[in-house]
Design a binder for these strands. Structure first.
Ligand SMILES: NC(=O)c1ccc[n+]([C@@H]2O[C@H](COP(=O)([O-])OP(=O)(O)OC[C@H]3O[C@@H](n4cnc5c(N)ncnc54)[C@H](O)[C@@H]3O)[C@@H](O)[C@H]2O)c1
Ligand SMILES: NC(=O)c1ccc[n+]([C@@H]2O[C@H](COP(=O)([O-])OP(=O)(O)OC[C@H]3O[C@@H](n4cnc5c(N)ncnc54)[C@H](O)[C@@H]3O)[C@@H](O)[C@H]2O)c1
Lengths: 205, 205
DNA sequence: GGTATATTGTGACAATTTTCACAATTTAAA
DNA sequence: TTTAAATTGTGAAAATTGTCACAATATACC
């Protein structure tokens, strides 16, 4: 029903509103959010209406009410457990990242085929891929991050899905094939950077 | 004129086509690209038409012709120099990443305020931020990656723009304010993961 | 050479998304 | 208490994006 564009906008609102709140505001007008996010004021209002957040005519919206609604929308009241495949450069960055906790996201385990990485102490335990079924089952994990090299991404992906994973954030530059019930988000850092390069050289001058 | 959705699809095609080429194919049909990328065959054909790539009725498209057209579209004939701000977890991953070279992208320098990082040997030299004007000027850099903590992102951003940067890939969870002529791409890893969690728990069962 | 078949290329259409514009309503001020 | 000003909420219009369906045409096969 809700488009992913909508979902994405909600997260953008949350970011700006958290910031405005830290700065000391308690209420906002739609045009203020618009200025902060680059999303038009009318669309902000439509989104808030869809979220069932009510504003006061002439008084604006309460930041906390919006934030609660967004957090509630994303089900931040439960802890979301995630596993990681590939404890390389990207994998380590993810595992070291402290901010996931604020979102109630917890990386419970990582998998890597390199035995050296399994022995080393990171913020999360590193297992061989064979442990995947056990771990996913034990912690009731739904979501995985794939940060293995491109050539093994599909294999790892298949395996994760076999263990019951239903959502994947994928860093490997491949178009993974997955069954319908699995949601995939591809983070294409190369493509992203290439787009920036493209658009910044096309811009005036 | 061209939407960013279109530009993004081109990069998706490139990924799949490179793969199909490696596998030994030389020609493709629109429905093959569709199957590989999840983009509908009709839209693939429209995109290729817009790219001015001609297919043969009943014969399909030549992979190399498409790849050349896409590469040409993105101006891959020149080397694109990029600087990085923030040599932390993400910054190191970016700098270590070998694949950028294939896209003719070169990270020429990094900036970090930590003197320890400046002394250490990485694949690219690390300078204090003060060196920014010199470096950007010397290497004629247009594009930057921001991988500093959120609270210093806006400052770093302003500084980069002052030095002449016109495109930014930003990892910090803030809505940066930039002048119109600067193109920004926000890589919101937290949001991305949150969306995966959201969509994967909403999917049937 | 003729016919059947497969695939492109595209105009018309459908759906979705966003903007526009303004009535409804609240608040502040006079 | 009245009036003026500000802002939401939302239907209608516009814009954008993608799908459908099929004519055009190239190829393969008989
Ligand atoms: N680093 C970047 O900036 C960057 C940018 C764009 C894309 N990527 C992509 O992200 C992915 C990860 O990149 P990286 O730089 O962290 O790579 P990396 O080589 O540093 O790490 C990969 C890790 O995966 C492990 N691994 C390999 N095969 C495995 C398997 N079958 N099962 C489990 N673990 C396995 C390796 O032992 C290694 O620890 C790659 O696909 C890369 O193309 C990375
Ligand atoms: N690591 C992740 O998985 C992850 C996920 C989502 C978002 N992010 C965001 O990406 C950014 C980088 O994350 P990270 O994990 O690499 O952080 P990090 O703390 O590992 O690295 C930040 C680096 O920036 C440097 N720095 C700080 N202030 C600076 C300044 N003013 N000028 C120049 N350099 C400065 C620090 O010395 C450090 O080396 C952060 O904004 C973070 O919120 C990271």
């Amino acid at each position: 029903m809700e488009s992913t564009a909508y979902t994405k906008r909600l997260l953008t609102y949350r970011l700006s509103l958290s910031h405005l709140k830290e700065v000391g505001l308690t209420d906002v007008f739609s045009y203020l959010i618009a200025g902060e996010t680059g999303i038009s004021a009318a669309l902000v209002r439509k989104d808030l209406a869809q979220l069932k957040v009510k504003g006061k005519r002439r008084g604006g919206y309460e930041i906390d009410v919006i934030l609660d609604a967004i957090n509630n929308y994303f089900g931040d009241n439960t802890i979301n457990r995630v596993v990681l495949a590939g404890m390389g450069n990207i994998g380590r960055a993810i595992v070291n990242y402290k901010n996931f906790e604020n979102r109630r996201i917890k990386i419970v385990a990582a998998f890597d085929l390199d035995p050296a990485k399994q022995r080393k102490k990171y913020d999360v335990p590193v297992y061989p891929m064979e442990k995947c079924p056990d771990i996913v089952d034990k912690y009731r994990v739904n979501v995985a991050v794939i940060a293995v090299p491109a050539f093994s991404a599909q294999t790892v992906c298949d395996r994760l899905i076999q263990c019951g994973i239903r959502g994947i954030m994928n860093f490997a530059p491949v178009n993974l094939k997955v069954p319908d019930h699995v949601y995939i988000s591809n983070v294409r850092l190369c493509d992203e950077l290439q787009q920036v390069i493209y658009h910044s050289t096309k811009t005036n001058q």
